[in-house]
């Protein structure tokens, strides 16, 4: 499998200014992240809220400029693209957002919502209608005829998310980034949407990047998992290996926090990491997890950044515990 997306040493920092010019510091939303997504692969990027996973997703889409490092799509670096090339890139990267209710313009009907990307990318009028109908059928938004004239507020949450997926797919992308696509939906429709994404990913041979904080469902929809903490990528591994044998203390803590349906576990004491994720405006030196880490080693974890250690086949973990 060839690499479709290559991310090298990527940092995305946001400057915080007062009165528009006084520099107060920078939020290090994504810091020195490296990862590779293979063509046709389905991966999940997991982490707590505010760990930088959405920023990473937006940077992959070219919506944020990297402060440092680069993102390459099919071998071409994004920040080096000209305006026209960037527009063409946007056609090959689809984006499904978290909030289906706000993701479509409330004053446009379904037909127009789906037509907009086609118009912008210069698809001829004669071709549009057929593509719109095909896209709606692909995401099972039927009866198509009835839905074309509806406005978003007339659709259910699940239907709206299908519409968003249809819009993301209508330009025939090679990469689809889904940022918590089901977190705002009713539990009853989550599975449908996830199944839909899974099926489309398989049919179209899409590279699918899921962003989620829900580790309980990841196993069914991703082949590999990247775990992020405080702007850093801390562990990456094939899904089964990561879920069954996590190596990084943060991943272990995260998995420990998953709600377990087994009633017997209700009274079991969990090992929860104390404290909160650090401020990204002023992250801790060394390993960013060390203030909460049960295995933190004084003089090492609080001083030096841990590099990525290979701890298995395709399994990497950024923790000093693996240094031997």
């Amino acid at each position: 499998m060839s690499a479709l997306v290559e991310v090298e040493d990527l940092s995305v920092h946001f400057e915080v200014r007062q009165w528009g010019f006084l520099r107060l510091g920078a939020v290090q939303a994504v810091d020195r992240v490296a990862l590779t997504l293979a063509e046709g692969e389905s991966v999940a990027i997991v982490g707590e809220s505010g760990c930088g996973k959405s920023t990473l997703a937006r940077t992959l889409l070219g919506l944020h400029r990297p402060t440092q490092g680069e993102v390459r799509f099919a071998g071409r670096e994004l920040s080096g693209l000209r305006r026209r090339e960037l527009k063409a890139y946007r056609a090959s990267a689809g984006y499904v957002q978290q909030d289906p209710f706000g993701a479509t313009a409330p004053f446009l009907d379904v037909r127009r919502i789906l037509a907009e990307p086609l118009i912008i990318q210069g698809v001829k009028r004669a071709e549009r209608e057929a593509r719109i109908r095909a896209a709606l059928e692909e995401v099972h938004l039927t009866p198509v005829e009835e839905l074309l004239g509806k406005f978003p507020h007339m659709l259910s949450g699940g239907q709206q998310q299908r519409l968003v997926i249809a819009r993301a797919l209508i330009l025939g992308p090679r990469l689809l980034i889904a940022d918590e696509p089901v977190s705002m939906l009713d539990a009853s429709v989550r599975v449908e949407i996830l199944e839909l994404l899974r099926r489309i990913q398989g049919q179209r041979r899409l590279t699918l990047a899921f962003i989620t904080h829900d580790l309980s469902t990841v196993r069914h929809y991703a082949e590999r998992i990247f775990v992020m903490y405080a702007g850093r990528l801390v562990e990456s591994a094939p899904v089964d290996e990561l879920l069954d044998a996590p190596r990084h203390p943060y991943t272990q803590a995260l998995l420990g926090a998953i709600a377990d349906p087994d009633a017997a576990n209700a009274h079991r004491q969990r090992e929860l990491p104390a404290g909160e994720p650090p401020s990204l405006l002023d992250p801790p030196r060394g390993c960013r997890f060390h203030p909460r880490c049960p295995h933190a080693m004084a003089g090492l974890c609080d001083r030096d950044d841990p590099p990525d250690f290979d701890v298995g086949a395709q399994h990497r973990s950024a923790c000093w515990l693996h240094r031997e």
Binding site: R58, L61, L63, L86, K87, R90, A91, A93, G94, Y95, Q97, Q98, D99, G102, A103, T104, A105, P106, E116, P117, I120, Q121, V164, R167, A168, L171
Partner: peptide, 12 residues
Amino acid sequence: APYIEAARAYGA
């Protein structure tokens, strides 16, 4: 609004 970000993502 998310739809503005979506519009940027499809090239508007």
